[in-house]
């Protein structure tokens, strides 16, 4: 509808972003890139909200507002995460998640 682009195109992009994010989350060896992957996942979700809002309920704005909220929360989350990562780095001199294994039995 947006200049003749069907909804599936947006959804395919969103799914790809989501799974790329998950993949990155699971396999990357660096906390910063893991944080980036989380951002990717969140953005995929935001895209979904916007697209569904626009295509299914064009006269409502809830989806867009929700998207804005997620962006806000994501910003907060990123700042928290970076603060944590900096602290981890100060203590351990690295940020490799495989080697951060204190929180176990």
């Amino acid at each position: 509808m947006i200049q003749g682009i069907p909804i599936t195109h947006f959804l395919v992009v969103s799914v790809i972003m989501f799974f790329v994010g998950i993949m990155g989350f699971i396999i990357r060896q660096n906390l910063i890139t893991i944080l980036l992957s989380v951002e990717l996942i969140l953005n995929a979700v935001v895209l979904n909200f916007l697209v569904f809002n626009r295509y299914l309920f064009p006269h409502h704005l809830q989806g867009q507002f929700f998207g804005l909220f997620i962006i806000g929360v994501a910003a907060a989350e990123a700042s928290m995460a970076i603060a944590l990562i900096i602290n981890i780095y100060r203590r351990m001199r690295h940020i490799d998640p495989d080697k951060i294994r204190e929180m176990k039995y």
Binding site: I26, P97, D98, I100, R101, E102, M103, K104, Y105
Partner: peptide
């Protein structure tokens, strides 16, 4: 052993 401490394993 399931509680390994590996963040990515949990995920």
């Amino acid at each position: 052993g399931f509680q390994s401490g590996h963040l990515q394993q949990y995920a």
